[in-house]
Design a protein around this nucleic acid. Structure first.
Length: 117
DNA sequence: TTGCTGACCGACG
DNA sequence: CCGTCGGCCAGCA
């Protein structure tokens, strides 16, 4: 079909950005969960790489709400200063000690589960 | 064009 | 518990 009425053909990066924007305030998600939601369970690295390119996007991408599966702020070094990511999360009511989100399971937002059809 | 890197994850010994 | 390796795929020299 020549009908461009299906914007789902966006790049992998665009899909990642779309999911990250859906992460609610005070919640966090993981690279692997987002990759799995996009249908590529093994492409968690691409999600992280997409975050690296997120600053090129015009819209604000809450990249600070994306951490690794351990709830560790593995990407904090990409916010200019390593304290920015932690402060942003703490500003949303999260507790972080030693780059580890306290009660990670309680604030974890899984797109596969939350956005399931 | 080829080769390497990377904000990850899971498996193996 | 720890180190190591393969897979996934986009960007860059």
């Amino acid at each position: 079909m020549a009908g461009p009425s299906k914007p789902a053909s966006q790049s992998f990066f665009e899909n990642v950005f779309d999911v990250v924007r859906l992460i609610p305030h005070g919640r966090v998600s993981s690279y692997g969960a987002i990759a799995e939601y996009l249908g590529s369970r093994g492409s968690a690295r691409m999600v992280g790489w997409a975050m690296n390119a997120s600053h090129t996007q015009v819209t604000n991408i809450p990249a600070h709400r994306v951490v690794n599966r351990n709830g560790l702020l593995s990407g904090k070094h990409h916010f200019g200063n390593p304290v920015i990511m932690q402060q942003l999360l703490e500003n949303e009511g999260l507790k972080i000690i030693e780059d580890q989100i306290i009660g990670f399971e309680k604030v974890f937002w899984n797109p596969v589960k939350e956005l399931q059809m």
